[in-house]
Design a binder for these strands. Structure first.
Lengths: 205, 205
DNA sequence: GCCTATTTGGCAGTGACTGCCACACTCTCG
DNA sequence: CGAGAGTGTGGCAGTCACTGCCAAATAGGC
């Protein structure tokens, strides 16, 4: 907001440093495991001091899950744009499309997903950050649903948002057991259909 | 399974020690915050060495989320019993009833829920453990759905399980903003109804 | 080319957690 | 009753993620 179209030179060199560090760290995580890789080792290989490494990435998990924060903002932005036109489910779906196609190729996303789902510490960080995404969406969806005449709008909003995230989750789990070429969005849609289908059994009255 | 009705003296004294430690730790967490409480302080107040404290609770978060593991087993057991008779949604609901009424009074559960939801480190541990619960349920529900003639049974199972958990989640969030006397199960049911209701918008065909 | 603001590195410290070893307790068997 | 095996406990030193602090370097604007 302060720097609309003016990324200073410092910003760009910082961005470069971040990318360079990630290029060092991620392969190390993939090759020898996340836990077995120390911050000291990453700093050494990246040619910076450990102290500086911690200035770029406040926590070890941020080397993998750091980009989550800006993705969350994008998600909220897309959902906010869609909500006036469509229902919550479609708006959330648009959010997923935006997020999953940004920043990473399917192959990169595949590797990172495997890494996260296979490392408890990373999974923990990932899940917490996604909770933040959900919290940011609640007011948006609540507002939209409230207008449609529901009384317990916040509860409905929370439930639908959480369900959409859980579908993302389930689709992701299935996806990483297959091939990166598989269509994650199709899996997501099938999950949503499964959850919303009423042929399993009746919801409690 | 090995010790059906024969808790040895050692087991009982261990159980006693665990409870005594928890009685020391939880109030400290509630009063002065989780992060601000050190393991050294807990050990001192509990009258044991720091080394022994770590033998009883392998990690600091286990002082709050440790009971989760046995609850997960109970959950899976109840769901497994229910599944032959009912659909997945009802079986999962029975699981929630069992889990939420075991071990803690509503007031205790309320305090612990607030503590967990308000502490990122605890939330992380909690979410990861719940992922384990889900993984344990997948084969059970997959089996049941598969019998009903679906082809992509595992995907449907994962999606429905995850959705049920997300409803638990949403209901919990709403619950902790109100009073312990509120009916958590009623909130859960409303979340499930909200997710499965088709009057928000149509699921993608 | 200088002055200032930001970045960087080193260093010491904290807190969670682990491996190791020695000591104590208990339970059992002779 | 006493020797020995098994187990719980404490202490200690070490690892690793992470932070605060200070001094040196570096970059940018004048």
């Amino acid at each position: 907001m302060q720097t609309p179209a003016r990324p200073t030179l410092r910003d760009r060199s910082r961005e470069l440093a971040v990318l360079s560090i990630l290029d060092t760290a991620i392969p190390l995580f993939v090759e020898q495991g996340y836990e077995a890789t120390t911050m000291a080792q990453i700093a050494e290989q990246a040619g910076i001091s450990q102290r500086s490494l911690f200035r770029y990435f406040g926590a070890k998990e941020d080397l993998v899950c750091g980009a989550q924060d800006e993705l969350g903002e994008m998600f909220a932005r897309v959902v906010a744009e869609e909500l006036p036109r469509t229902g919550p489910w479609d708006a959330l779906r648009a959010g997923w499309i935006a997020v999953t196609t940004a920043n990473h190729t399917p192959d990169e996303a595949f590797v990172l997903s495997r890494l996260i789902l296979g490392t408890p510490a990373l999974l923990a960080s990932y899940l917490v950050k996604r909770q933040r995404w959900q919290d940011a969406l609640v007011p948006l969806v609540t507002d939209r649903i409230g207008r449609a005449g529901h009384d317990d709008a916040e509860l409905v909003a929370r439930a639908v948002i959480a369900a959409s995230f859980s579908c993302c989750d389930a689709a992701g789990r299935i996806w990483v057991t297959g091939s990166p070429a598989d269509d994650w969005l199709a899996l997501y849609d099938r999950c949503v259909r499964a959850v919303r289908a009423s042929d399993l059994d009746a919801p409690p009255a």
